[in-house]
Design a protein around this nucleic acid. Structure first.
Lengths: 391, 391
DNA sequence: TATTATAATTTTATAAAATGAAATAAAGGA
DNA sequence: TCCTTTATTTCATTTTATAAAATTATAATA
């Protein structure tokens, strides 16, 4: 093929399997060691990778490991959620250089993107502007990343918002993506999914959806609709969902359902400790109360875990993933939800049952994943301008 | 990259998008037209592709279309089902050269593979043996294609059957695959799925499973378990399944369920025209009666279509395929099942709703798909021995 | 009918990429 | 110390890919 795709291949191997030495890269790529030497030379000169000593002790010359280098190229990622925007700056290897968070209470696109630009500027304030590769934004809703359009966002109350115009003055490559897919990308490259080829990242919050990783990359489907399993029917003729159908997963599992059940319980059982007015902190309080062993709350998570477990088991049977990552709001409940979830998955999924873990990047997952969008764009297509021609 | 992978890429473009001219191949591959000329020259010399005149009428020199050539390289495919083995010989472009079918009534591996070898020999009898690329076999059950092992087959009553030993004397490359995946491959390369990148092929017979096509190739999952959605729970706390759980799709949808319902109806309503003893033709008779407008049968397909529709809608929401192909036994019911199926999918799947069609290769789908296994192996990895080096 | 414009393909000289083989480097062990 | 092993690099050569020009073949036009 052409020169560039060989470089991209080597770089992708280093990203996925690094730190890795030249000899191993040669074996994985089927290139000769000589070729790997020449390609990695140029990547080192362009400061994309760097050598780190390997300390395995066999006979013979010690291998020199190569890894994506931090610091020389940076990317900014921003998450929009219902109450905040969260920003991070990361290096190529995912290390967090900086992070910042701010509250929002106005939801018009102008307001939010204005705030994002303020946050962006404050993040890159004392950094070398030339090092910034780009900006990625994770948005809850139905996103068209190609045309940089938010098709629909229930959380933000947006419909057909074109994002381009807000950033044209910024003069920096920028990308948007659905928040769950951004989380998935972050976890895949830098979190719980490192080294995995096929996994599902379940985003459970107000709605339920999954980021799908196939053969090491995100699968969005031909219409960017893949992963939307919130309205999977698991209880035919069961509880009515807001979509009108009966028995959808989302009718049984969501942060709203949990809050509803708790508030109803508060009414009946004279619960204390909750301030139902601070909606944004209610779930947090519920989780804390549950973690301290409250039977009523435990029982609610048990119920939710059963339905979510069936939903995920259905996906496991169909998709045969190596790993399930639980992310977004519900993931904050950790063992509280994980334990009943695992139990019910074992009941309904056919072996082999994959590991089920909580998001490793936690509250920064979406921002980190969004920053990864710009890194991915660079690593997959735009090296030319950074690596000169000629050998 | 190396020469071979460029050749494979061009060949795959011709397979997927052919007949196609050199100029279009250049655009799709990002190779220069000059490169395409040199690669296609060699492919023509090796008789993998041939030129056919294009009859589109624009200005300028007419393009010369290239297509996989038939006749110079052949592949044999064989399907094992509960009562027959079916064999075909196809060319690279999927044209059927020959087909043959025989009954089986003994199910020991020695018996079946003995019969397969007889069928194979009779199929290649008057053909040039040098042209035969290989033999593929589609088997109902859980298959490990890499180790050529049938892990489990309920239909055949097999467990841990190693297939290698039966073919070592034949001295020809051979491959095995799960029957639904074989059907899927056949439909993708030569049937209803030509040109599609992401589709599901639903195999509905005694059991229910799906062949998954992602980015133009079959996805089997890390453990070859992908697609097994027969035990997807769609009716929590519903009808008990033979697996022990409640509400599985297979408890509501399978040829056995249909036959059961009909036989029960026969008992109650004094139905005539069925001979319940000839199990292998019963479903056929049921379908024929339904097609002639019998209300009782129509109603059964309506019920089955509802449940299958919900199951498939769940997959559509999750997977966002471009196309759904219905195959295997139930597909023989054609409109009888398709109409209620489509109706219920529209009720439960989020738009955009993909086309839903019946298998185009029909009763030869599995055999053709199995033959495709050997062609795929050749086209994806073994060209070296056919195409000499040098430019 | 000859000419012109256009489109597809091929030729050819050149540049770039990839490799094999030999050389070098860096370690452990005798 | 020298030998063996393993990793990496050098360098001459082969292979692959390309750009630019040339050729071929066609439809539209004069």
């Amino acid at each position: 093929m052409n020169r560039e795709s060989s470089i991209l291949l080597v770089l992708d191997i280093i990203r996925r399997y690094g730190p890795i030495n030249r000899y191993e890269i040669a074996k994985r790529t089927l290139f000769s060691p000589a070729t790997i030497t020449s390609i990695t030379d140029r990547l080192i000169k362009a400061e994309f990778i760097s050598e780190i000593p390997a300390n395995i002790s066999k006979r013979g010359r010690k291998p020199i490991n190569l890894t994506l280098s931090n610091g020389n190229h940076l990317s900014v990622g921003i998450e929009i959620d219902s109450h905040h925007i969260t920003g991070v700056v990361i290096g190529l290897n995912g290390d967090i250089i900086k992070s910042k968070k701010s509250h929002i209470d106005k939801y018009a696109p102008e307001d939010i993107f204005g705030e994002i630009i303020r946050l962006y500027n404050s993040l890159i304030d004392n950094l070398d502007k030339n090092k910034i590769l780009g900006l990625g934004i994770g948005i809850p809703g139905l996103i068209d990343p190609k045309n940089k359009k938010v098709i629909f966002s229930a959380v933000l109350g947006w419909k057909d918002v074109y994002v381009n115009k807000f950033f044209e003055n910024l003069n920096i490559p920028f990308f948007i993506e659905d928040n769950v897919r951004a989380i998935t990308l972050g976890e895949l490259w830098y979190g719980a999914g490192i080294g995995k080829d096929n996994l599902l990242c379940i985003g459970a919050g107000r709605g339920i959806s999954a980021g799908i990783v196939i053969n090491g990359s995100i699968y969005s489907g031909p219409n960017d609709r893949a992963g939307e399993f919130g309205h999977m029917v698991i209880g035919k003729d069961g509880k009515q969902c807001r979509c009108g159908n009966y028995g959808c997963l989302e009718a049984y599992v969501s942060t709203e359902v949990i809050i509803e059940k708790v508030l109803e319980g508060v009414k009946n059982n004279a619960y204390t400790g909750f301030d139902p007015k601070d909606e944004s902190r209610l779930l947090e309080e519920i989780i804390n109360t549950g973690k301290s062993g409250d039977k009523f709350i435990l029982n609610i998570f048990e119920e939710v875990g059963e339905y979510l477990g069936i939903g995920i088991a259905n996906l496991i049977n169909f998709f045969n993933p190596e790993l399930i990552i639980l992310a977004d709001e519900l993931a904050k409940a950790e063992e509280l939800i994980l334990e009943p979830l695992k139990r019910n998955i074992r009941l309904h999924a056919l072996p082999p049952i994959p590991n089920i873990v909580i998001s490793r990047l936690g509250s920064l997952a979406c921002a980190i994943g969004s920053a990864t969008l710009a890194i991915k764009d660079l690593l997959y297509s735009k090296l030319d301008s950074y690596i000169g021609g000629g050998s």
